[in-house]
Amino acid sequence: MRDMDEVTILPMQDGDLDQVTQIEKEIFPTPWTRRQFQFEIRNHYCHYFVAKIGDVVIGYTGLVVVGSEGYITNLAVKAEHRRKGLGTRMILTIFRKALEAGVDIISLEVRKSNLIAQELYRQFEFHPGGVRRRYYVDNREDALVMSTGYITAGKLREIIEKNEKYLMERNLERQS
């Protein structure tokens, strides 16, 4: 879809929070609050980004960096913009920030039932590493812990380049 060409990914700001929390409420059974996001975007260990078309937030993601480890806290895309490469673009943003911050390992939790998200994370060489039993408070579903394992700066660059190429090829296919 052409509107994905118009998407910009920028650091999350206070002015984005009303739209971000609205997306949270639409997507997640136990959404984060505005106050939680405010705390996160003011924390120097955290890096949050929004995907926008014009002034409209259509997705967001966050990375916490502690030492050489990174943790993806959230990744959300409005329903009408899913499966168009936006999740890939946002994770690329996270990986670039991780590279800049000297991160060696990136991890996250994902619902065991969320196979689409797991597929996206595998594209970035995340691998299952464990299970957090009854992690999600809304339905007590287990979370699959996924991690890149130890990655060098060179490996991070390779993953970024592979996924940039994937996006470019996908965009060319849609245009033809």
Rank of each mutant, 00 (worst) to 15 (best):
L63P: 07
G102Q: 00
R83Q: 15
R96F: 10
F95M: 02
A101M: 14
V66C: 01
I106F: 02
I105T: 15
K84P: 12
A101E: 13
R83S: 14
R83I: 14
N74D: 12
R83V: 15
T93W: 06
S107V: 11
A76N: 03
T93L: 11
R89S: 06
E100Q: 13
L108E: 07
G70H: 04
G67D: 05
L99Q: 01
V66K: 12
E69A: 03
F95W: 13
T88E: 12
A101I: 12
G85V: 07
V65F: 01
R111H: 08
T88M: 11
T73P: 03
R83K: 15
E80S: 13
E69M: 01
A101Y: 06
K78G: 00
A79L: 14
L108R: 07
L75P: 06
Y71E: 13
E80I: 13
K78W: 01
T93P: 04
A98R: 02
T93H: 10
Y71P: 09
I106L: 09
A79E: 15
R89G: 09
R83D: 15
E109V: 11
V77E: 09
L86Q: 00
V64F: 11
R82Y: 09
I105P: 00
L63F: 02
A76F: 03
L99H: 05
D104W: 12
V65Q: 00
T88F: 04
A98F: 02
E80V: 14
I105W: 00
R89T: 11
I94V: 11
R96H: 14
I94T: 09
G70W: 04
S107N: 15
N74M: 08
V110S: 08
V77S: 08
M90I: 10
L108C: 07
N74T: 14
R82S: 10
I91L: 10
S68R: 15
K78P: 02
K84M: 14
G67T: 01
H81A: 08
H81R: 04
G87R: 07
T88I: 11
S107F: 14
E80N: 12
I91N: 10
R96C: 11
S107K: 12
V103S: 02
I72K: 01
S68A: 15
I106P: 03
G85A: 10
G85L: 00
D104P: 12
I94L: 06
V64G: 11
K97A: 02
E100M: 08
R96V: 12
A98G: 00
R83T: 14
I91H: 03
E100F: 06
R82W: 06
I106G: 05
L63N: 04
E69N: 07
G70D: 05
M90F: 13
R83H: 13
V77D: 05
I106H: 06
A98T: 03
L92R: 08
V110E: 07
E80H: 13
R89E: 10
Y71F: 15
L86A: 01
G67A: 02
G102F: 04
I105V: 14
I91G: 09
L108H: 00
G70Y: 01
V65I: 00
V103I: 03
